[in-house]
Computed example of a mutant assay.
Amino acid sequence: MITGMQGLDRITRLLTRRLLPGLIFCLFGAGLRAEPVLLVLSDFSPSYNQVRDAVMMTAQQPPVVTTPDQLTPTDSHRGTILAVGSRACEQMLSRYHPDTRLVCSFLPSTTFVQLKRQLLPEQGQPQVSAIFIDQPLLRQIRLAKLVRPDARFLGSALGNNSQSLRSELESGSKEAGLELQLSYLTTQDNPVEKLTPVIQNSDLFLVIPDSSVFNRAISKWLLYLSLRNQVPVIGFSESYTNAGATASVHSSPTQIGQQAGEWLNRLSAGEALPPPSYPAYFDVSINTVAARTLNLKLTSGEALEQELLRLEARR
């Protein structure tokens, strides 16, 4: 017969064997797994703060926020880092540690490609990805086709920072049934002389987000020439729509932050790092005055957005 003391001792040993590993994990293992993500803002400007706020609202585990000026030597060794903006991405790529999963967000796709090529040229398959701020060209081209369904010729221009987009622009135009009228602009070119024949021979004009081509002055000329030639302009920001573009597709800082927060949740759940991606969430804005001047019957930005989502869901 087992005495009371022997039974108690046996129960104690049994509980120790079963519960001790769990206690150790709770005290040490969970703490390691719960290491917070480092969120690096390029600075505390309003747009970056909006990305940060959306990440905080979406991510199940709030990240630790810092800026490039506040980084410590050990910060680059974090398990997961979210860099917001080109400056933050550049800093974290230059400090990249092979054991880190780095997500750059809220920066142009061309900027990310250039930075990665410059700062990680020898890396085979680094755990580095991105959420771009610009839209996929096919999304812009499809919007153009929705604005003018009977269009046959699509005009556009590329500069030094966007030449790598030529193949994507050509394939997207072909898929939409449009013939591409393309011009290349350098800083030495007269933009009016280069853009005028393209606009005159196009039914639509697509603006590529490239500061080496479309600065404020050139954009004003572009909008003037397109209106004079009755050619709708498809832009990439709400500002372009307000300035005179017929329609634009764009993503807000909040939308980029929401997508980034969702990525962090997927990573914390053990999923693989997603590949570099364009925004999943976007809005379409239309300029009703420009549309009316060009005799275009556009219902609303929301209706165009839903049609774009339907087209993308078919792929």
Score class of each variant (00 low, 15 high):
I208Y: 01
V207S: 03
S219D: 00
E238M: 13
S226P: 02
P149K: 02
L165V: 01
S237C: 14
G235P: 10
R216W: 04
S202G: 10
P136M: 08
L115R: 11
Q127N: 13
L169E: 08
L225H: 03
P121C: 10
T110Y: 09
G235T: 13
S212P: 02
V113E: 14
L223G: 00
S211A: 15
L158Y: 06
P191S: 09
V147H: 01
R139S: 05
N190R: 12
S171L: 13
G155E: 01
L143I: 07
F236K: 05
L225A: 06
Q114Y: 13
I218G: 05
E170G: 01
S212N: 04
S239K: 13
S129Q: 09
I131S: 03
V213L: 07
T241N: 10
S162K: 14
K145S: 15
S183G: 08
W221A: 10
Q230I: 05
T196S: 12
L225Q: 13
Y184Q: 11
G155V: 05
Q230T: 10
F153G: 00
V147A: 06
S167E: 13
Q188C: 02
G177K: 06
V128Q: 01
Q118A: 12
T241M: 15
I234Q: 02
S162A: 12
L143C: 06
D210M: 01
T186I: 11
V113G: 00
P232R: 10
N242D: 11
N160Y: 09
I131D: 05
R139V: 01
L182N: 07
Q123Y: 07
L225E: 07
L185K: 05
E193L: 15
I208W: 06
E175N: 12
I199E: 07
E168K: 11
E238S: 15
Q163G: 11
V192Q: 15
L204A: 03
S109I: 07
Q123L: 06
N229P: 04
V233M: 14
